[in-house]
Design a protein around this nucleic acid. Structure first.
Length: 821
RNA sequence: GCGCGAUUGGCGGAAUUGGCAGACGCACUAGACUUAGGAUCUAGCGGGUGACCGUGGGGGUUCAAGUCCCUCAUCGCGCACCA
């Protein structure tokens, strides 16, 4: 150990040692309690950004801490390496997606290693690796055989720029989540996963995910969007046809004055009368040309066209007209809505626009509302009116009774609806897992035989950026034989959404090298669940719901032992600078490479954990980084200066002076604080600040007479608790102090509760809740003794003099409050 | 519009169960050492400088409120014509 802190030398040295010793290689060990800590794996863009540094620093502290605590820790890392940027690079620079991706992976691996992260590198997965996507295809086939994958033609979200379809979850504000282009609609035959079959379980299980942030659970809950209500069937006047609507408010059935169906609804053609046909067709065409943005931006201005047909209210027998309008969505509920303008604002707006009657059926007992001339729709509770036999009934009760009546009439039933749609998983892209399905003219869609997996991506493809998916340009890919009948057949040309790849990688980590299976059940059983999952909140819905769905489906297939994969979830905040998101266009990007080059990985890690609690936004501060660097230098100097003392110090010692006592207190307090903050609350910032306090104490202490044994103890414990945050410098100091065993193999220190009891403690005296006096009292006083002592205090006496003490509240060890009049 | 979360010194943030507001760090000020200091060390650092006021504003509960309740404001995030 040199006099000056040379982080570059130290970090290189220890990274090499860890690598050579395979320090973090792990295997199943039933003697130890397992702990699985996982950070969301990156897309290999080639360069780490500060968000990665934050994510992986958090995970690494947890992993190293748990390891020192004696757990058998699984801490893996890999790459979500299929995806569009690789294809774009191919189009732009003519480099093959595979080469581009693997180069990036190599580059990124180097950067991760420079951070000193404690991964078991032998378990690394790359989703673009045939030994990974082989099992992706295998899982797809299991899902297909279970009836969870199906193909259907449907209007789908189409990104004109990415030239592919998108899942609902990937359309944000009507635009492509990836590139921001306006998403249009296209009728295509596509593969879907039946995630809707799992809607109820996905929703219900949220309640048992106690280790998840409420925010994420709420977001998923809203996304699943469960609504309870009823389906009501209406006869169409003069036709042998019926229309079924979904409503959450069957109690308002008597208030229906019109019906609206989605323009795309197949029934529209049948019910349109000849004289309305032209207008209906024109409207449909107009709607079809609109993007989702246009369709939803005209918030209040309702449009629509009368079809010429009428329906009959099953309970009241009244007739009313059927319209089409774009505010009714084809894929929610039944695509048909009963218009109740009195109690639904959208219906109210529509009725006003088309001059349709408005019948109030619920009296909300609001004196401001004139029931004969409603100013707006009312949604509040109330009593039914204008509703025949239901008049006078509370509307909550009416929901039940009306549903019962409809059921008895065979006109409806209580039902539940979800906003969640099936997951569209086909992508018209090259750089993804080929969907292992074969189309045979005689047998239809047939899965590829398992022994033929993986269906390899062909390399004889062209990247033009135009026309269809590059896969279609391959001369060999499509040709195959039907696995069932052996006739000539063709392969599916679409690849899978990359979100499939990331929906089970945590399972592959459990048994990453298995060539016979996706994973061994027992190994999975040993490691799962993920005890701590860490990543950005931007994955709250997409990835985290898809992964939950996969796990449930795999559970039903008997392939995994739990229904939910992630026990505890930490969503880390963004790294920002000067209040803004780091971005190239603003020019406020701080590169991890630069920071590590200038101050070292230990400083970078320490700062990013110190500057803010993990779930909050972190404002990057260049000055703050220097502060962390200064702190590590301060630690280094202390250890360097004390090393002779420590090396010659005895292993046991006695507390003699009051300085000894307070250093022993600080040492034990810090160990306790760090243990609790890292092990329980994940408040790394306060853990680090308490280590700083201990270091400050030691600097003060070394100017007094040094108790060598105590000094040694304090310095060593300080190094141990600092090591998860700044592992390289701590290994170096640890070795320098004469330890043969590497720090990463050393146990976490314990603390002595007895040393945390002080002889004297400072308490405060308040009068009427205002702080008036501080005093030192012996610790462990009971209420009465404490009160007596306080009342003897000169200042307190003077303040109470001549006044009436009404009440005394004594909190031993803390304060005394005198209520005085 | 609906839902969730935040608001504490010049700044990032502490205060775990209602019990000393401002830990720790940054910035700043003064001093020491020094040929020099952007190194290091020491001291100070919410406002007013009297015993008072201070956790976005207003109100409440309590002996005691940053913390609990009501209300308003601002900012951020999510969802949004979901019947």
């Amino acid at each position: 150990m040199k006099e000056k802190y040379n982080f570059r030398e130290i970090e290189t040295k220890w990274q090499k040692i860890w690598e050579e010793e395979k320090a973090f290689k792990i295997s199943e060990d039933t003697d130890k309690e397992k702990y699985y800590v996982l950070e969301m794996f990156p897309y290999p863009s080639g360069k780490l950004h500060m968000g990665h540094v934050r994510n992986y620093s958090i995970g690494d502290v947890v992993a190293r801490f748990k390891t020192m605590k004696g757990f058998n820790v699984l801490h893996p890392m890999g790459y979500d390496s299929f995806g569009l940027p690789a294809e774009n690079a191919a189009i732009k620079h003519g480099v093959e997606p595979a080469k581009w991706t693997w180069d990036n992976i190599a580059e990124m691996t180097n950067q991760l290693k420079e951070m000193g992260l404690s991964y078991d590198w032998d378990r690394t997965v790359q989703t673009c690796n045939p030994n990974y996507y082989k099992w992706m295809q295998w899982i797809f086939i299991q899902f297909y055989n279970k009836g969870l994958a199906y193909k259907k033609e449907n209007p789908v979200n189409w990104c004109p720029s990415c030239k592919t379809v998108l899942a609902n979850e990937q359309v944000v504000d009507g635009a492509c989540e990836r590139c921001g282009s306006i998403v249009g609609k296209k009728n295509l035959s596509q593969w879907y996963f039946k995630i809707t079959d799992y809607a109820e379980r996905l929703l219900k299980n949220l309640d048992i995910l106690e280790g998840w942030p409420n925010k994420v659970k709420t977001m998923q809950k809203n996304w699943i969007g469960k609504s309870r209500g009823a389906e009501v069937t209406f006869d169409i006047k003069g036709m042998d046809k019926k229309i079924t609507v979904f409503t959450t408010r069957p109690d308002t059935l008597y208030g229906t004055t019109f019906m609206v169906i989605a323009p795309e609804h197949p029934l529209v053609e049948e019910i349109t009368t000849p004289e309305q046909k032209a207008e209906i067709e024109a409207y449909k065409e107009k709607v079809q040309r609109m993007t989702d943005i246009e369709r939803t931006s005209t918030t209040n201005e309702k449009t629509g066209v009368f079809t010429g047909s009428y329906v009959i209210n099953p309970v009241s027998g009244t007739e009313f007209p059927i319209y089409i309008s774009d505010y009714v969505l084809l894929d929610y509920g039944t695509g048909c809505v009963m218009g109740v303008p009195g109690h639904d604002q959208r219906d109210f707006d529509f009725a006003k626009k088309f001059d349709l009657p408005i019948i109030p059926v619920i009296d909300t007992h609001d004196p401001e509302i004139d029931l004969n001339n409603l100013p707006h729709a009312t949604a509040a509770e109330g009593t039914l009116i204008n509703s025949g036999e239901f008049n006078g009934m509370n509307n909550k009760e009416a929901i039940v009774k009306m549903t019962e009546k409809l059921e008895s009439m065979g006109r409806g039933k209580g039902t539940i609806n979800y906003k969640l749609r099936d997951w569209l998983i086909s992508r018209q892209r090259y750089w993804g897992t080929p969907i292992p399905m074969i189309y045979c003219e005689d047998c239809g869609w047939v899965p590829e035989k398992e022994e033929n997996l993986p269906v390899m991506l062909p390399t004889d493809v062209e990247f033009t950026g135009k026309g269809e998916s590059p896969l279609t340009t391959s001369k060999v890919f499509a040709q195959c034989t039907c696995p069932k009948c052996g006739k000539k057949a063709t392969r599916e040309m679409d690849t899978m959404d990359t979100f499939l790849d990331s929906s089970w990688y945590f399972l592959r980590y459990c048994d990453a090298l298995n060539e016979e299976k996706a994973w061994d059940f027992d190994k999975q059983k040993y490691w799962m669940n993920v005890d701590q999952y860490i990543g950005g909140v931007e994955h709250a819905i997409l990835h985290l719901m898809y992964a939950r769905f996969f796990q449930m489906a795999l559970y039903d297939l008997g392939l995994v032992s739990n229904e939910e994969p992630f026990e505890n979830l930490l969503t880390q905040g963004m790294v920002i600078k000067e209040g803004k998101k780091m971005s190239k266009s603003i020019g406020n990007v701080v590169s991890p490479e630069e920071i590590i080059g200038k101050f070292g990985a230990d400083t970078a890690r320490l700062f990013i954990l110190f500057a803010a609690p993990p779930e909050r936004e972190l404002d990057w501060s260049d000055k703050g980084v220097e502060g962390s660097y200064r702190f590590l230098n301060r630690v280094y100097r202390l250890v360097y200066d004390m090393s002779d003392v420590i090396k010659n110090a005895p292993d046991t010692y006695e507390i003699k002076s009051s300085e000894d006592k307070s250093l022993a207190y600080a040492m034990n307090y810090t160990v306790k604080k760090v243990t609790e903050d890292v092990g329980g609350r994940f408040n790394f910032n306060t853990a680090i600040s308490s280590i700083m306090e201990l270091v400050n104490e030691m600097y003060k202490y070394k100017d007094h007479e040094i108790n060598e044994g105590l000094m040694k103890d304090a310095v060593e414990k300080m190094i141990l608790v600092l090591s998860p945050f700044a592992p390289h410098i701590c290994e170096e100091m640890w070795q320098h102090l004469g330890h043969e065993t590497k720090l990463y193999k050393t146990s976490w220190p314990s603390y002595d509760e007895k040393a945390l009891i002080k002889d004297e403690i400072e308490v405060v005296v308040q009068i009427n809740g205002k702080l008036k006096e501080r005093m030192l009292v012996p610790s462990g006083l009971d209420k009465a003794a404490f009160e007596k002592l306080a009342m003897e205090n000169e200042k307190v006496k003077a303040l109470v003099e001549g006044k009436n003490v009404v009440k005394v509240i004594a909190v031993p060890g803390k304060l005394l409050n005198l209520v005085v009049k």
